[in-house]
Design a protein around this nucleic acid. Structure first.
Length: 768
DNA sequence: CAGTGAGCGAGCTTCCGCTTGACTT
């Protein structure tokens, strides 16, 4: 018999707490929620006051059995789940599943894991707060109702297996609306005038002043004319202003800001960041990684100060406590910080080291002094034009926190680099080195990255630290959005330069719209979004979550009845569901593009059974309509008649290579050449299926053949030993088998291979 | 790996938020 059993949510937390509590306490973990609404059906008896049907999921059965046993063996049970809505619900489910006594079960909470905090918590147990539990039940049931009533409407009216939800549908909406802004955007070009000046015309020293003219020119000829004016002008310093300023460090990391910075500084995806952070947490190297709090414990503040004093000195230290700003924050944990602030580095994988260092720097910097800067602006006047050039420079007088860490921004602009300006006096004569007019296009609003989407969702108070990464996976898994790179389109930029009295013109190419790992909406995402906006505008409203959150708060405070709140929501919502099912037509995103120039048949595009498709002819007319799939990166919304007609040119016969026909087409994985019943992919960004030549196609086929030969290390007839991306492996009957560790691939015999394959098949069956 | 788009219909799909492994490649 144990004297005391403490139940927490996370096993790593259980381990650390056990160390502090001593022999009389056994600490175990519930691994999060132990019960949920029934998986099948709605799991809610709506007519019976929204009575929930809870069940223990299969994968939780073992944990629950162990918890039951532990509880039975203990005199006192202490429930120490997190101090928020979800944590309180976990506590209540534990009480009912473990058949504990609600009024006497000791509910305790703590925000930092120190001996002091734990002892204080143990001395102040309370009861499970049923108001807070009920606010969680309302949240859970509302989400289930929204998801499980709208999704089937989509299956009927749009396509099977789609989904909608309070969080995911807003995430998709953000991406779709941004894309439409980009589609509607018309870039405009203008010429900016940049001059490089120096004080002494003969000096070769690097004390240059880079200044921009206060006027831009939309017309190239006007820009050139201005440079002519410049060539005969005198330039003098018209004014100098020096202003002191300060810069302050960013708060310590929350889940959302960690995901953003790890993406910007380390190139991690949102889910990669969470996997690496989980490893660090389990190893006891950082505090909990799913948090919305920027709070640091007193201990962490003191330790940070100690580290800063010894590393950088007194004047670099400034203890700060940050207030959490984000909407709906529940602050059950600390900010994400190193568990031991005096460890600057750790052992572990490269990614673990990198992420840890980022967390260390951010935490330490947040406790350091402001940086002091001096911003200097020099204005330069001309004697034959009212245009003023101005140069901005920044000098860091005291680096403060910048010694350790600078926060990145999403869209870093090289143009805004700060220079140190040489010292000049008012009225001083300046000499230009070059003055250039650079053509520049305005850019559309940026597409979302995973990280910037998380940032936006957090600002709207939608989603929680534990769901940002899964939500991003969901909207990609459903096919609503796709994360991809785009090469962009080449665009010429003109540069007109005045140098030593003569004007010359040159040009530079840029890839307009080049994108890396951005979220692009897909047709099905746009169709579903529009359908939801038309029929369920309340649910996809950016304020919906904030509004229901207010009501959940009222429930938590005991000012609102949870069943009443749900009833009010449901009666209006359910009517919308039935009305939509009854009255609305299927939504296919159909667009009539026009008529075929030769046959006069109708040409249209729509979402077909297997994806977006262009169609010539109408099933109402005679003859079967013809179909062609749209290419990736074409949208139903923007495709034109000629582009649609062009799709019907494929597949086409290309010609003969060594006696057999080559056919070019475009399939699920992009453009290909088919030759002797085998597919050869055309090179992305290099080959175009409409214009690829016979010679080029033959070269692709030949090259692939040679590569395949290189791949084969040994050929045992039906079994092949192949060299793959991850090293050698076996292939038989189109199935691949991994080699056991430590085997020398080049010494394998056919018998060895058969043995490996049989062994692998056996273990596979066991796990089935 | 890639090509498809007649029509019918059984049975399936689906939410958010709290936690980790157990999987395969």
């Amino acid at each position: 018999m144990t004297e005391n059993l403490v139940i927490v949510e996370s096993p790593a937390k259980a381990k650390t707490i056990e160390k502090y509590l001593g022999k009389d306490f056994r600490v175990v973990s519930s691994f999060g929620h132990i019960r949920d609404l029934a998986k099948k059906n709605l799991g809610i008896d709506i007519k019976n006051n929204f009575s929930p049907e809870y069940e223990i999921p299969k994968e939780k059965a073992k944990v629950v059995a162990e918890l039951r046993k532990a509880a039975a063996e203990s005199k006192n049970v202490w429930i120490a789940s997190d101090e928020d809505r979800e944590g309180e619900a976990i506590a209540w489910h534990l009480v009912s599943v473990l058949k504990l006594n609600l009024p006497t079960t000791k509910r305790i909470v703590f925000h930092e894991i120190t001996k002091d905090a734990l002892e204080k918590a143990i001395l102040n147990p309370r009861q499970v707060d049923m108001n807070l539990v009920n606010s969680q039940q309302a949240r859970r049931i509302l989400d289930r109702i929204v998801g499980f009533e709208i999704s089937p409407v989509l299956w009927k009216k749009v396509q099977p297996a789609l989904s909608a939800g309070r969080v995911q549908s807003v995430a998709v909406r953000l991406i779709v609306e941004r894309e439409r802004e980009i589609i509607a955007f018309k870039p405009e070009s203008s010429f900016r005038i940049n001059g490089i000046f120096r004080t002494d015309p003969d000096s070769t020293e690097n004390n240059l002043i880079r200044a921009e003219a206060g006027k831009r020119f939309s017309d190239e000829n006007d820009a050139a004319r201005f440079l002519e004016v410049c060539s005969s002008s005198e330039f003098r310093v018209a004014g100098i202003s020096v202003k002191p300023g300060t810069r302050s460090p960013a708060p310590p990391f929350t889940t959302s800001t960690l995901q953003q910075e790890a993406y910007r500084k380390l190139g991690f995806s949102v889910s990669q960041t969470m996997t690496v952070a989980q490893k660090l947490y389990e190893a006891g190297k950082i505090t909990y990684m799913r948090t919305d709090s920027t709070n640091l414990s007193k201990l962490a503040l003191a330790k940070s100060r100690e580290v800063i004093l010894s590393e950088f000195g007194e004047k670099y230290s400034r203890t700060r406590q940050f207030k959490t700003k984000s909407k709906g924050a529940q602050e059950a944990h600390e900010a994400i910080r190193p568990a031991y602030l005096n460890s600057l580095t750790i052992t572990g994988s490269q990614n673990e080291k990198k992420l840890y260092e980022l967390i260390w720097k951010r935490t330490i910097a947040s406790q350091m002094a402001d940086a002091e800067v001096e911003r200097t602006t020099i204005s330069i006047a001309m004697n034959n034009s009212p245009v003023i050039f101005s140069a901005a420079g920044e000098v860091i007088k005291f680096d403060g926190f910048l010694k350790v860490y600078t926060e990145s921004t999403d869209y870093e602009n090289g143009d805004e680099e700060k220079y140190i300006l040489p010292s000049v006096k008012k009225g001083m004569l300046l000499h230009y080195v070059t003055i250039s007019a650079f053509q520049k296009y305005t850019t559309p609003p940026p597409r979302y990255t995973e990280a910037s989407l998380v940032k936006k969702l957090e600002e709207l108070g939608i989603g929680r630290p534990s769901t940002y990464a899964p939500t991003i996976s969901t909207i990609q898994n459903r096919g609503y959005v796709l994360k991809e790179d785009r090469p962009g389109e080449k665009r010429q930029l003109k540069i007109i330069t005045l140098s030593k009295g003569t004007i010359s013109t040159s040009s530079k190419t840029e890839a307009a719209g080049k994108e890396k790992a951005k979220l692009f909406p897909q047709d099905i995402g746009m169709i579903v979004n529009d359908f939801l906006l038309e029929n369920f505008s309340e649910i996809v409203d950016y304020n919906f979550t904030a509004e229901v959150e207010e009501q959940f708060d009222e429930i938590a405070e005991g000012r609102l009845k949870w069943t009443g709140m749900l009833d009010k929501f449901y009666s209006a919502f359910h009517k919308t569901v039935t009305d939509t099912l009854e009255k609305k037509n299927r939504k296919t995103g159909i667009r009539i593009l026009g008529v075929h120039p030769e046959t006069g048949e109708q040409v249209s595009v729509k979402m077909g059974r297997f994806g977006p498709v262009a169609q010539i002819g109408d099933s109402a007319q005679e003859g079967k309509p013809r179909f062609a799939s749209l290419n990736r990166n074409q949208l139903l919304e923007t495709i034109t008649l000629p582009e649609a007609l062009n799709l019907f040119r494929l597949p086409r016969s290309l010609g003969i290579y060594e006696g057999d026909e080559m056919v070019v087409g475009t399939g699920k994985f992009g453009p290909y050449v088919r030759y002797r019943n085998k597919f050869y992919s055309l090179k992305k960004g290099v080959d175009d299926p409409y214009s690829v030549t016979v010679e080029r196609a033959a070269a692709i086929i030949k090259e692939k053949g040679e590569n395949d030969k290189k791949k084969v290390m040994k050929d045992f007839g039906e079994i092949l030993l192949l060299n793959g991306r991850y090293g050698p492996y076996l292939s038989k009957d189109k199935k691949n088998y991994r080699l056991p560790k430590g085997i020398q691939a080049d010494k394998l015999t056919k018998e060895d291979c058969i043995g490996i394959i049989n062994e692998s098949e056996k273990t596979k069956k066991r796990t089935d």
